[in-house]
Design a protein around this nucleic acid. Sequence first.
DNA 1: CGGCTTTTCCGTACAATGTACGAGAATAGA
DNA 2: TCTATTCTCGTACATTGTACGGAAAAGCCG
Lengths: 229, 229
Amino acid sequence: MDPETLWSDRRHQRGRPPAHTREAVVAEAVGVADTEGLSAVTMRRVATALGSGTMSLYTYVSERDALLELMVDAVTGEQDLPPATGDWRADLAAFARGQRALMRRHPWLPVALTGRRTLGPNTLKALDHALALLAPTGLPPQSRLEAFALVSGFVASHVGYEVAQEQALGRAEDAKEFAESNARYMTRAVASGAYPHLAEAMAASGAGPAPEPDATFERLLARVINGLT
Amino acid sequence: MDPETLWSDRRHQRGRPPAHTREAVVAEAVGVADTEGLSAVTMRRVATALGSGTMSLYTYVSERDALLELMVDAVTGEQDLPPATGDWRADLAAFARGQRALMRRHPWLPVALTGRRTLGPNTLKALDHALALLAPTGLPPQSRLEAFALVSGFVASHVGYEVAQEQALGRAEDAKEFAESNARYMTRAVASGAYPHLAEAMAASGAGPAPEPDATFERLLARVINGLT
DNA sequence: CGGCTTTTCCGTACAATGTACGAGAATAGA
DNA sequence: TCTATTCTCGTACATTGTACGGAAAAGCCG
C-alpha cells in the first residue's frame, strides 16, 4: 500500500528460502495480461500459471493492486532510452514513439496507468531521461515536468483509444456483433440530423482512405510537441 | 452490450408499469459515485439507495457496465455549450474549461472514461458542438476530429492526475499515511543521485511557491491549443 | 545431530460482487 | 373476468480478494 514497502524488495536472509522471485511473479502476471487481458490477472490465475498456491503470492506482493503497480513499472523498464542528440524535438518524438510501442506491446498498459499515484524506479528513470531530453529547450524545470506530463498523457490517451478501436474490431465473435451494431447506431445517429457537423466530418472522412494509425500518431505528436514552446 | 440496445430507452406500453425511470436509476448511481467513489457503485448499493430490490435494476440496465456508460453520458449532458463567438481559440478553451469543471464535479469521470468505446447522445452532442467551434480554424474535417480528441484527451488525463493528487492528500487517515510515505520514498529516491535531472527539477520547484492548479491547467491548455495549427 | 527461530507455503474459509432463474404481482386490453 | 405482458425481487451460485493458521523448510547454536 505505502510506496516505501511497495518498492522495496527485501532480500532473503533467514528462514525458508522463497521458491520464486518477485520479478518472476510480476513477469508471469505481465504474460497473463498480454495474452488474456488485464481482467484475467487474478491472484488464482497468476499463481497457477506460476505453479504455486494462490496465497503464496502474498509473500511477494502485499495485495493485487501492488501487483498491478509492479507490472506497470516492470514494462516501463523495457523501453530503452537513447541519449540526447541535440535535437530535442526529435529526441522527444523518439521517446514518445518508444512509449507508444510499449503500450502496443502491452495493450493493458493505458488502462493500468489510470489512477496510479506512485512512481516506481523504472518510471522515475524514464522520467529523468525525458527531463534530460528536454534540457536543451531552455524551459524552466517546472515546465519540463509539465511538458513530460503533457506528452505522456497524450501518448497514453491516444494509444488507449487505438487499442480500444482495435479490440472493438477484433476477430472475436461478439466483437464483430458489437462493431456492426455500433456502425448501425452511428449511421442512424448521424442520419438523424441532430449532429450536422459530425455528419459533415464523417462524410468527408468516409470519402478518403482509412487513416493510417502510425501517420495519425505522428501528426498529433507533432502538434503536441509543436505547442510546447 | 451492443450500442443499439444500450442507447435506446424504450417507452412503457403494456404490462406492469415500471416503478422508476432509467434516468432516475442513472442519477442515483451518479450520486453514489460522487459521494462515495466509483467502486461504491454496486448493483446492491444503487438499488437500496433507490429503495428497490437489487435485481430490479436489470429492468433498466442490461449490466453494470452499461450503467457506467449511461452515467458517463448523463453527466456529459450537464455541460452547457455556448455558441461560437468567432474566436475559436477562446471558444475551444472555454469548452475545455467546461470539461474540466465537469470532471472536478464528478471525480470518477476520468477513470470511467478509460476504455469506453461507444458514444452516447450527449457525448455526440458535445462532440458535434466542439466540431462547430473548430470550423473557423479552416482545418479539414478529419483534423477537427483529431483536434477534439487531442483536447479531450488532455483534459481527461490532466484532471485525472489532479484528482489522484488531491485524493492522495485527502483528509482520510490512510491517505495521510500514504502521502508521508510517498514523500519519504521520493526524497530518498532523489537523494540517491540516480535521477539527477529530476532532482534538479524538484529542487527548483521546491524553492518556488506551490503551483496553482487553475493556472497550471490554463498554461498547459494554452500549449495544446497553440500546437493545433 | 537436535532443538529454536525465522520465513515461506498454501488449504480453508469468508465476505462481497455480478447476475441467471423463476415465481409472483401489477397492469391494459379483450 | 381472463389473458398477455411487463416489472419486481428473493434465492442461488460462481468468482473474486484476502485473513487466518498450521505445516514445512531452511540456518544457527548448543
